[in-house]
Structures are given as structure tokens and as C-alpha cells.
């Protein structure tokens, strides 16, 4: 960011009514970078973007929160103010608590799988960074695939009859048949977690790799000379220095899984037997299948509040590590 320009010293006070050679003004660096621009220029330049974002991201979300205190008595009837009734209904419904449980499993499972794989792959890539360029393209691969396409690919991969996963499992000794992945409540959740992690991992790897690349080699060299083994170096030097990126990845993965709907909807649609009915799915079901929009908004608001807490954590991490969050 720009540093504050040195304060003008001496007789730099602007004299507005003097003759032109007397009109000394302080250096304009403080106000405008380029001398001679109109004051309105930055406003005109930034207004369209700011208005569009405020109108299509900020306003709808606030409107949705406000509407969660209303309800339509019948479909098509005008909404009436009902206070917190939508919320009390939500908290007393079993489906909501069930979806909260599923979300907790989904988020924590994705975090564990995602961070373990992310760190593993980031460390591996760091060793060859800049040398094998095709690996970078491979790493980015899942990032360019839509959630629906990822779901189709994983439904093929995890198909109980011809899926490659089960072929590999059945090839192993002592195993007769692999699980019926998407038909079994437990394994369906596992499949959803892996699909979600697969789509999210590229950004995690890039984030961690970026962090690794900023670590000063002097620290590692020092540890090496002190005789620290590879594992100890990672454990006591690299991981602590990587803490900001790890925390940011954790927060980002939580955000992505907590609010993610695409993968679950396209892969299982919440099934089997609501085994993968996360809160995002529950919101979608309540609003767009049962057409109880205001009730759906209560669920959405609940998720938004959880997510706002996550964002707060994100900002605090940024402050703590002097990180430009």
C-alpha cells in the first residue's frame, strides 16, 4: 500500500487568493497520484464496479436476512412479518439438526483429507518447483472442472459395478467386494468428501506452495547444520513458518465446504436416505423443492452467520501474521 508522503514543511500553506506565482500548494502526492486529474475521476471510475457488487452481492444477502423474518401464510399470498418464527421452527425441526450434523462431518472430513493431502503434495511439489512445469498444469487440473463435471467423473470412478475404485479394491487380497459407494450412507459421505476435496485441492496446494516459497532458506539451513532430521525440520521449522498459509487454507476449505452446494447436489442430491443432506442441501430442498422460501432463508442466514464467524477468523489470522488479508 502507499506510504504516507512526507509532510510539507515551511511555507507550503495554500494561498487561494494570491497571484498565480504565489499560489504554492503542497505536493499533491497525498491527494492524487497524477497531477492534474479531476476530483471526480476516481469516483466515476470505481462507481460502476462498486454499485454492481453492492447491488448484486451486498443487497440481496441483506434482503434475504430481512426476509427471513417474514413468511407467506399460503403460496402466492403476500408475506407477513412473523418475527423469529422461521428460526424457532428451524431449531425445532429434526431435519435441520440432522443437516447440521452432516455438515459437521462433511466440513471436518474435508478439512482432514484436504489438509493432509494439501501439505503432502505441496511439500512434494516444493522440491521440484520451477523444474517440472507440467506438474503445475496437472495440479491445477481440477480447478477448471465444474462441480457437475466432477460429480459425473467421481460417480463413474466410484461406481459399484464397473468403477475403477472397486476394481482396485477387489484386486487387493482378502477383499471380496468393494463398498457400494453411493448407495451406502456411510460411503456416500466419504465419496462426497473426496470429490469436494478433489475440486478444492488446487487452491490449497497453491496457497501452501506460495507459503513454502517465501520461507527463508537460512532457517532450514540452520536446522540442517544443527543436525535436525528431515521430519524434525518440517515439524519444528517449516510448519511453524507456514502457519499463516495453513490457517488460511483451513479457513478457506471450511468456507468452501460449509457453503458448498454444487458437489453434493450433483453427486448425491443429499441421498441416500439423507445421508449427505448438508445444510446447503437442506436450504435448497426447503426453498426450491418445498417452495418455503422464507424458511429456506432462515437456514441460509444461519449458514451466513457461521460463515461470517469464519471470515472473522480469517481477518484475525491476517492481522496476527501481518498478512494482507
Amino acid at each position: 500500500m502507499t506510504t504516507t508522503a512526507p509532510q510539507p514543511k515551511g511555507n507550503f500553506k495554500p494561498k487561494r487568493n494570491g497571484r498565480w506565482w504565489q499560489r504554492k500548494e503542497p505536493p499533491r502526492q497525498e491527494n492524487n497520484a497524477i497531477i492534474g486529474e479531476r476530483k471526480s475521476t476516481p469516483y466515476l471510475f470505481s462507481a460502476p464496479a462498486i454499485l454492481l457488487v453492492a447491488g448484486l452481492l451486498g443487497f440481496p444477502v441483506l434482503w434475504g436476512v430481512w426476509q427471513s423474518f417474514y413468511r407467506r401464510p399460503r403460496l402466492g399470498a403476500p408475506p407477513e412479518r412473523v418475527g423469529i418464527e422461521n428460526y424457532s421452527d428451524m431449531f425445532s425441526s429434526d431435519a435441520f439438526w440432522d443437516s447440521l450434523n452432516k455438515t459437521a462431518v462433511f466440513v471436518s472430513g474435508s478439512l482432514i483429507v484436504g489438509m493432509v493431502l494439501g501439505l503432502f503434495f505441496a511439500f512434494a511439489l516444493f522440491r521440484v518447483v520451477g523444474r517440472l512445469r507440467f506438474l503445475r498444469a496437472v495440479t491445477i487440473g481440477p480447478y477448471i472442472v465444474s462441480n457437475v463435471a466432477a460429480a459425473v467423473m467421481f460417480r463413474i470412478l466410484f461406481n459399484a459395478q464397473f468403477g475403477t475404485m472397486n476394481q482396485v479394491i477387489e484386486w487387493l487380497p482378502f477383499v471380496d467386494s468393494g463398498p457400494r459407494w453411493l448407495a451406502d450412507p456411510f460411503w456416500a459421505m466419504v465419496t462426497v468428501i473426496f470429490t469436494q476435496v478433489w475440486t478444492d485441492l488446487p487452491l490449497v496446494i497453491l496457497l501452501l506452495l506460495g507459503g513454502l516459497m517465501t520461507i527463508d532458506n537460512a532457517h532450514l539451513d540452520a536446522a540442517l547444520v544443527d543436525g535436525a532430521s528431515g521430519w524434525n525440520r518440517a515439524r519444528h521449522v517449516t510448519i511453524p513458518l507456514l502457519a499463516p498459509q495453513i490457517l488460511i487454507s483451513v479457513v478457506w476449505l471450511s468456507y468452501s465446504t460449509l457453503t458448498g452446494l454444487g458437489v453434493v447436489l450433483a453427486l448425491t442430491g443429499g441421498g441416500p436416505l439423507k445421508a449427505t443432506q448438508t445444510m446447503a442441501m437442506e436450504m435448497y430442498t426447503v426453498a426450491f423443492r418445498n417452495l418455503e422460501f422464507n424458511q429456506g432463508l432462515a437456514i441460509a442466514t444461519f449458514v451466513l452467520v457461521l460463515n461470517a464467524l469464519l471470515t472473522l477468523a480469517y481477518i484475525r489470522i491476517g492481522r496476527r501474521y501481518d498478512y494482507d488479508a
Binding site: V53, L57, G58, P60, V61, W63, G64, Q67, Y255, T259, G260, L261, A280, M283, Y284, A287, F288, F293, G296, L297, A300, T301, V303, L304, N307, A308, T311, Y314
Partner: peptide, 13 residues
Amino acid sequence: LPRLTPSIGLMIP
């Protein structure tokens, strides 16, 4: 703002 307004919060509004 984008972090505070994920599409799950935008869908219905």
C-alpha cells in the same frame, strides 16, 4: 464481501 456472500446466501434472494 464475496466471502460474506457465498452463493448459498444469494440463491433465494
